[in-house]
């Protein structure tokens, strides 16, 4: 398999590490009081950490270009055909400003 790193170009899969489903987003934690956040956060985190769809078809996945530029990538891939439909860099790869609102938006 070959993944087109948006920074390095197309590279063989040995340079990458797979993490998994890119859909779940870490729940946003606004305030902590005595070690606890918002009501129901344990359920939200449980879902984030454990619940995954087993997609037969197109799926977004995290891949890490650790054997190259050390960027985290979001790869849209068809799990049936192995076709790679798109590769995008994670928001924080370079030096671009990412505002907190955008980070929050990821929680929905």
């Amino acid at each position: 398999m070959r993944i087109a790193c948006p920074f390095c170009g197309e590279r063989e899969n040995g340079e990458f590490t797979y993490l998994g489903d890119a859909k779940p987003k870490r729940p946003f934690v606004a305030v902590i009081e005595d070690g606890k956040g918002a009501e129901g956060e344990q359920d939200a985190f449980y879902e984030y950490v454990y619940l995954r769809d087993n997609v037969a078809g197109e799926m977004s996945e995290y891949w890490y270009h650790g054997g190259g530029c050390r960027s985290w990538l979001v790869v849209k891939r068809n799990t049936l055909t192995h076709e790679i439909l798109s590769v995008a860099a994670a928001p924080g790869t370079g030096a671009a400003v990412v505002d907190v609102a955008m980070a929050k938006a990821g929680t929905e």
Partner: peptide, 19 residues
């Protein structure tokens, strides 16, 4: 050493890109 580096990059690039 390797896994922690990978984890920190994940935190930096994916979880908290605003930092």
């Amino acid at each position: 050493a390797g896994p922690v580096m990978q984890h920190l990059e994940f935190c930096r690039q994916v979880l908290w890109p605003e930092l």
